[in-house]
Design a binder for these strands. Structure first.
Lengths: 357, 357
DNA sequence: TGTTAGCACTCTGTTTGGCAGAGTGCTAAG
DNA sequence: CTTAGCACTCTGCCAAACAGAGTGCTAACA
């Protein structure tokens, strides 16, 4: 059940025609506009074969063909050649990032905006897992009696805060002491290992009998528990989705946007795409286990800081997307973001690497 | 050009009929279902008068009437009697807040969720302006050479962070010193006054000649500049808007949701509604200066901490909303949020004004 | 054996006319 | 001032008709 060269070209023709127009593509169109020098009747035969093999489908007798998910998947895996993004486009995207420096949060938000604007679909960025970065700083602030605001800062500049209720009322002075101790203890420890580090330290006998130390550790343990679990995602340009004619049905669109509001679903989807091995990953709706997202498709690419993958970014749109245009944008944006996040301390070529003392 | 009691009742009937059904209301319906003991012909005469006066309009000859903006405004200001929210509903809302404690951010996000769910429209919360609260803590973290992460915590537990580029490379030790100095200097100062306080301190001659002090002040000045300006808003339940039949037109809906994505517009709208004098404020779309929001309406209520207004919360929906149902929910939620935010340290006076019979 | 022209058939989308229903304004009578 | 009655208007819906797009099949052709 191999696909001949010609079969593939017909499949490609149908798919790109469908992507362009959003409507079923007929044999006549294919034979006329896609430079295969065969008549429409021949195309019809081929199309019928492709339908038998499950790559194409007909919405109804006497309509043209549209690709099935299987067809799309084959197209993406075997037919589509991904080019580099044009220099001109690259420059435009670079420029979009130049405007203003800011927080890492600003940077990531901007990234999703850029994705949305350039791809004309919804742009999405999965925030770095704290566990992917290193410890930088912790701070405790006594907001009210028995309420402590914990602020955790990662080396990459992520800030996370949690409110802890604590049985005992600790003074701000004590809290400052705890923080100093922890900041020293955990300096530069990968946040994924912080828990182990704390547990190990708890067994240290010097610590075991010191009220201060053990309480500080207990406190940080609770704080990290909350902080490390959280995952966040930012979606920009929902409304671009409304531009797609396939979502003209309000009710359907509503269900999809509803799924977006509960971010956990999107996070689950993106988590699946967080494969450091692959530069770009495409999840067709039907391949995800999220019911409400059956009709949409995600093109994603991981972004890194140095070697470690921090998170994923991508574009969400209808299955019928111009993959050949969007994939290069997504991969380029991912690599650009990785560059922007690169730690100058660690880059060998960069300026003098100071140690913070 | 006074409206008689009867005229008002007809207007009310048309409006509540229209709110219920979303369709033009005819004279027959009014005379039958709204207990005015007059015939439909009489109603027709009255409706014609109301139309002349600009309170009603006809989508086309031989359709029923729908209210104009002026008519709605009159209804809201003069006819509608706002009741207290039922005890049962109150309890349900209270319960929705109980589930989990968290950050102030969590609390505010939850508030917008509650609004959205109970009103079945989009819920919106304008974050407290930092300038409305008091200084609690500042912290500087040296992320990279010449890059300082500033973390600012208000007494109410709001956390704000900004990244500052600084000409000179300051050591973490120095930064800690600055922070200690500032934390002492600014303890409990209202953030609105912090700038003045800093400027005043800068003129202090003891400080003037001390490198450390003056740099700390300069640093904080820049930090506060950024932090105090920012305003944030959270909108929950966009998708509820899609439920309204008047937004069945995708293109129109898209424009509205697009306006939501650029939060500055919503912030502008909510700022207008931040009037501490009024318990509830309603902005009809046409009354706002935001073009894209002509067709929607905002019901809002300020929330406080003690005496000072922190921000606004509200509900955004189509003009045709069940005001009589939603207004009590909004005002109740605002007062509940105020209670939850109340500082136990400061509120011995028990200002719980929202007692119900 | 693969390709092509021709033809009958099917399904969709749009247009047209007709019709029922809802609602109005006006008039004349109570 | 109120109301019954009536002619009129506009919408929404339905059915029929029709053009257009596309297919599958068959038979002829290279």
């Amino acid at each position: 059940m191999e696909l001949s060269e010609r079969d593939q070209r017909v499949l490609e023709a149908v798919i790109s025609g469908y992507i362009r127009s959003g409507e079923p593509v007929g044999s006549r169109t294919v034979s006329k506009h896609y430079g295969l020098n065969v008549s429409s009747a021949t195309i019809r035969n081929i199309m019928a074969d492709l339908e038998d093999m499950g790559f194409l489908q007909q919405p109804h007798t006497s309509a043209g063909r549209i690709p099935t998910d299987k067809g799309l998947r084959f197209y993406l895996d075997s037919i589509l050649k991904i080019r580099q993004l044009e220099k001109r486009q690259q420059a435009l995207i670079r420029k979009a990032f130049e405007t203003k420096k800011g927080d890492i949060d600003d940077l990531l938000r901007r990234t999703s905006q850029v994705l949305s604007r350039f791809c004309e679909q919804a742009g999405v960025v999965l925030w770095p897992r704290l566990s992917a970065t290193r410890f930088k700083h912790i701070e405790f602030v006594r907001l009210r009696p028995r309420q402590i605001l914990v602020i955790l800062i990662s080396k990459s500049g992520l800030v996370q805060h949690t409110l802890l209720d604590w049985e005992e009322d600790l003074s701000q002075d004590d809290l400052d002491k705890y923080a100093r101790y922890l900041n020293e203890l955990l300096e530069d420890v990968p946040l994924a290992e912080v828990k182990d580090r704390i547990l190990r330290e708890m067994e240290n006998e010097k610590v075991l009998f010191d009220q201060l130390f053990s309480q500080a550790l207990e406190l940080s343990k609770r704080a990290f528990q909350e902080a490390l679990e959280s995952a966040d995602v930012h979606i920009e340009g929902h409304t671009q989705l409304l531009r797609n004619p396939e979502f003209a049905d309000v009710e359907r669109m509503r269900r999809i946007l509803e799924a977006f509001e509960d971010k956990t679903r999107i996070i689950r989807l993106l988590d699946k795409a967080l494969d450091p091995e692959r530069q770009v990953q495409i999840v067709l709706g039907t391949e995800s286990d999220v019911n409400e997202l059956q009709e949409i498709s995600l093109i994603s690419s991981p972004y890194r800081r140095g070697e470690t993958v921090l998170g994923v970014l991508g574009v969400i749109g209808p299955m019928r997307m111009d993959y050949s245009r969007i994939i290069p944008i997504v991969t380029f944006t991912a690599s650009l973001l990785s560059q922007l996040l690169a730690d100058p301390d660690e880059a060998p070529s960069g300026e003098g690497a100071h140690e913070s003392s």
